[in-house]
């Protein structure tokens, strides 16, 4: 990796941090826009409503300070990984989220890899068999999965595979009440992962399959493919060495953009399967009107998207030699 590439990635990193800061500011104002006085909400939890106690709370949380000062405190706290307390659980928001984050990373990561692998494969197969029945089948299937609500698919899958057939666990991340360790635990988690990851991944599989198919067909009409054919290559070599690599570039870009959708989708999947990740945490926060926690989860999931985008940028850099020329 040369200097220009590193500078490029550095630039993207700085951009990501700036975006996160802006989201943080946005978050701060959203908390202020939430209904009710935060002090009253907190006091309500504690069961007391007298004015002296409210004043104490305001001082304790700096709510009596001017807005710009509060914003400054909020941002600087954020830089120290301090996102305030959960109103309801009285535990630091950051700790709550970090406790749940690995489960979400496992779920979304698996679903992401699965959907990319399956989607690209399906797209390539469809494009190679352009306008034959395999192509039609893949196109129809991806249209159907593209149209099916994620949460409904999750419910139906758990009903069928877990309740009706009894093949796979449809609830939680580990079997309750049994202490497992080592490989047994890994296998147990893996089994629990199958349904949530598949249902979350299927929608994105459809997205990637359609994108790959279109991109493959467009790329195969480009001039350098003609050159490759004129060299006397077999069609499969032309596809592998020349069409596929070029066709994957827009898919990589899309993968980065879709990362955000994937994390949003996790809220639904985790809710249906009771998967103990930040998506479910968000759902819980929603129900308990725990706005500080809600916005904390929102911020962390944005940070995850920035991270995913950065990873796709790096991959793009490695795959496309032309990137160093553009800014």
């Amino acid at each position: 990796m040369n200097l220009q590439t590193l500078l490029y990635i550095g630039g993207r990193l700085i951009k990501g941090v700036i975006i996160l800061l802006i989201i943080a500011v946005f978050n701060f104002f959203l908390i202020r826009a939430a209904p009710g006085d935060p002090a009253k909400v907190m006091a309500g939890e504690a069961g007391a409503t007298d004015e002296v106690f409210l004043q104490q709370l305001r001082e304790q949380f700096g709510l009596d300070q001017p807005l710009y000062y509060q914003l400054w405190v909020y941002i600087s706290n954020l830089l120290h990984f301090d996102m305030g307390m959960s109103y309801r659980q009285n535990i630091p928001v950051f700790d709550l989220i970090m406790d749940r984050l690995p489960a979400t990373l496992l779920l979304t990561g698996t679903a992401f890899l699965l959907s990319i692998a399956l989607g690209v494969l399906a797209g390539v197969i469809a494009s190679v068999n352009y306008k034959k029945w395999v192509d039609s089948l893949i196109t129809i299937l991806s249209l159907i999965f593209y149209a099916t609500p994620l949460f409904w698919l999750a419910i139906m899958a758990s009903l069928f595979f877990s309740v009706y057939l009894g093949w796979l666990p449809g609830f939680g991340m580990e079997t309750v009440g049994v202490e497992l360790s080592g490989w047994d635990r890994v296998i147990d988690i893996a089994l629990h992962l199958v349904l949530p990851a598949t249902t979350l991944g299927l929608f994105f599989t459809a997205v990637y399959a359609r994108m790959t198919r279109t991109s493959m067909i467009e790329t195969s009409r480009l001039d350098f493919v003609k050159t490759a054919i004129a060299k006397g290559m077999t069609p499969s070599r032309v596809t592998r060495k020349h069409v596929l690599r070029n066709a994957l570039l827009p898919v990589i870009t899309l993968a980065g953009i879709q990362a955000g959708q994937l994390i949003g989708g996790a809220v639904l999947t985790e809710t249906v399967f009771a998967w103990p990740g930040i998506g479910r945490l968000m759902f819980e926060a929603l129900f308990q009107r725990d706005y500080n926690l809600l916005l904390g989860v929102f911020f962390i999931s944005s940070a995850m998207v920035v991270l995913f985008n950065l990873i796709t940028d790096v991959i793009y850099c490695v795959v496309d030699p032309r990137i160093e020329l553009s800014k």
Partner: peptide
């Protein structure tokens, strides 16, 4: 036919800017 192409008979094209694979 493939054995002949690029071997006994070969071809060059109009657009040099797009006739080469950009990633190779």
């Amino acid at each position: 036919a493939r054995e002949l192409r690029g071997n006994r008979i070969s071809m060059i094209f109009q657009e040099p800017m797009t006739a080469l694979n950009p990633l190779m």
